[in-house]
């Protein structure tokens, strides 16, 4: 920085974000890390002594006296990961054909459907989840329709099951998968597709060899954007899931608002954070590698 006045200007511009995020973002994350290795107090709160059994309870080296290893925590972690993965796969299957379809529409209709897909971004998440509560209830719309059509004799028990949780997450996450996919599909080099077909490749071969590699960055982007908020989600399983749909986010919430075991809740949050950072790191290094080849 040659100019002294310039570095003053830079300082003025950067000071607010540095201070704000330093105090209200980095510090809280640091406190979670610290609390996760402190002793839980008897009546909530913490005692300032190192304690590794918080993680031991989850991963299996609990002392067996005060802290008992319960495989349920690992099961819930695995369930959260698999629900999130399932959400990624289902949103991808739903969005890929639709992105293709929208990209082939005329200008006017493309604008209409792009507006329709972005509209849920602006509308309330909790309201949209509540709608599914109305639909999936035993006395709800879905069962009423199925009963009326004679497809089932007794109402289906969908609400408060893992199915309801995954369905709710797919519903909430669909726009996040759609937008990166759409921009990838829209940028497809169509002449390559035609060349592939003209040269005798069939549709499946063309899709696998030409279309898929070109849209892979969009798929990866969408997958990351959908996976991350899904894995730590606690609102969807809270509203639509029962005991079998419990996810790690619900565990964290319980530790803070009912069990009052903050160190254990912090340890669980550290695991969510570790998963998220791992996914981010993998996607960033992959993207960098792909960029290097291009």
């Amino acid at each position: 920085m040659a100019n002294r006045r310039q570095s003053v200007a830079l300082g003025i511009l950067l000071a607010p974000v540095t201070l704000f995020l330093g105090v209200f973002f980095l510090l809280p994350l640091g406190i979670i890390a610290l609390f996760s290795v402190l002793t839980p107090g008897l009546y909530g709160g913490v005692e300032w002594a190192f304690y590794h059994w918080n993680y031991g309870r989850i991963f299996g080296w609990a002392d067996g006296i005060i802290e008992i290893y319960e495989p349920i925590y690992l099961q819930i972690l695995l369930r959260s990961l698999s629900f999130a993965a399932l959400t990624v796969i289902l949103t991808l299957i739903l969005c890929y054909p639709v992105a293709f379809w929208v990209s082939r529409l005329s200008e006017r209709w493309r604008l209409v459907f792009m507006f329709l897909i972005t509209l849920p971004f602006f509308s309330s998440l909790i309201v949209r989840l509540y709608a599914w509560l109305l639909i999936l209830k035993p006395s709800g719309l879905l069962n009423a329709a199925l009963l009326a059509l004679g497809i089932v004799d007794v109402p289906l028990e969908i609400l408060y099951t893992p199915t309801a949780v995954v369905l709710g997450m797919v519903y909430v996450m669909v726009p996040f998968m759609f937008l990166p996919l759409y921009s990838a599909v829209d940028n497809l080099d169509r002449s390559q597709i035609e060349a592939s077909l003209d040269l005798g490749a069939n549709r499946v071969q063309t899709f696998v060899k030409v279309v898929l590699p070109q849209t892979l960055p969009g798929i990866m982007g969408g997958a990351v954007i959908v996976f991350i908020p899904s894995v730590g989600n606690f609102v969807v399983p809270d509203v639509l899931g029962g005991a079998k749909g419990l996810m790690i986010g619900n565990l964290v919430e319980q530790q803070f608002l009912s069990s009052r075991n903050w160190p254990f809740g912090s340890a669980l949050s550290m695991i969510i954070m570790a998963v998220v950072l791992t996914v981010l790191l993998i996607s960033v290094t992959r993207a960098r590698k792909a960029g290097g080849h291009a």
């Binding site: 950067l14 510090l27 809280p28 730590g232 912090s266 949050s269 998220v276």
Partner: peptide, 23 residues
């Protein structure tokens, strides 16, 4: 800075929420 500014968006809200609560 460029990388760091992505983090608050990517951090699951529950982690940020309880971090702020403890803080």
């Amino acid at each position: 800075y460029n990388g760091f500014l992505m983090l608050p968006m990517m951090m699951p809200d529950i982690v940020l929420g309880i971090g702020l609560l403890i803080f």
